[in-house]
Design a protein around this nucleic acid. Structure first.
Length: 203
DNA sequence: CCCTGATTCGC
DNA sequence: GCGAATCAGG
C-alpha cells in the first residue's frame, strides 16, 4: 500500500478528529499504526492542536561576552513554550452550611473539555424503558464488572459506566465488548434498543 | 498486559 | 519517503 492522496486525506481527517494511530491504520488497512504515526510526523501533523508556533523566545543570553565566541547559537532543542504560571487560585468560600467536614471541593477550573470523539455516551440506565428481565440481567452482569478505570478501557472492553462519577464508587464495566460495539452483550441490550420495543413498552 | 504517540534509522 | 523497532509512558 502507498500513501495515495485519498489515503492521506483520510489520515489527515481522522487524525484531526482525534482518532488514534491504530484506529486510523485499521481504517486504512494495509498499514500499521507505526506507518500512520510516521506519516503523521512527515506531514507535520504531530501536534493535534494547532499551535501556530510558540514564538521561540530567543532566550537572550544576559552574559554573552566572549572574545573568541565559538558557537553563536548552540541550536539546542526548540525552547519549550513554558507553561502558564498558575493564576493564583481565588480563595473561594462556599456558603455551604451542610458540609460538616472540610472538603477540598474542586472548583471547575475553566478548562476546555476535550471530548475524545468516540462512541455515543450511554444513556443513564433508567428503570423504565427496560424490561425487568433485562434489567435483572444487567444488574447480575454488573456484579462481575471488571471495574476498570478510564485508562484501562480498550476497544474490546465494555465502556458502560457504573456508579457515580463524583464518588469513588465509579468504574467501567470492562467485560468483553461485542465486536464493534462499545459495550458488552448485557449493556448493548440496554444501550441499543430497537425503536419498536421502545414504542409501546409496557409499564 | 492492554494501549498510546515519539523517535530512530536502515531501507 | 517509508515504516519496523524501539522507546517512553498511561
Amino acid at each position: 500500500m502507498s500513501w495515495t492522496d485519498e489515503r492521506v486525506e483520510t489520515l489527515k481527517r481522522m487524525w484531526s478528529e482525534g482518532q488514534s494511530a491504530s484506529a486510523i491504520a485499521k481504517e486504512l488497512g494495509g498499514v500499521t499504526r507505526n506507518a500512520v504515526i510516521g506519516k503523521v510526523h512527515r506531514l507535520g501533523l504531530s501536534n493535534r492542536n494547532d499551535e501556530p508556533e510558540p514564538a521561540p523566545a530567543p532566550a537572550p543570553e544576559p552574559v554573552a561576552e566572549k572574545k573568541a565566541d565559538r558557537k553563536p547559537a548552540p541550536a539546542v532543542q526548540a525552547p519549550r513554550p513554558e507553561p502558564q504560571p498558575e493564576p493564583a487560585a481565588p480563595a473561594r468560600e462556599e456558603p455551604a452550611e451542610e458540609e460538616p467536614v472540610s472538603q477540598p471541593v474542586f472548583t471547575p477550573v475553566p478548562r476546555r473539555p476535550i471530548v475524545p470523539a468516540g462512541q455515543p455516551l450511554p444513556p443513564q440506565p433508567s428503570a423504565n424503558e427496560i424490561s425487568p428481565e433485562t434489567l435483572a440481567s444487567v444488574r447480575e452482569v454488573e456484579k462481575r464488572a471488571r471495574k476498570l478505570t478510564l485508562m484501562e478501557l480498550t476497544e474490546r472492553t465494555c465502556k458502560w459506566p457504573i456508579g457515580d462519577p463524583a464518588t469513588e464508587k465509579f468504574w467501567f464495566c470492562g467485560l468483553p465488548s461485542q465486536a464493534g460495539k462499545p459495550y458488552c452483550e448485557a449493556h448493548v441490550s440496554v444501550a441499543f434498543q430497537p425503536m419498536s420495543s421502545r414504542r409501546d413498552r409496557r409499564r
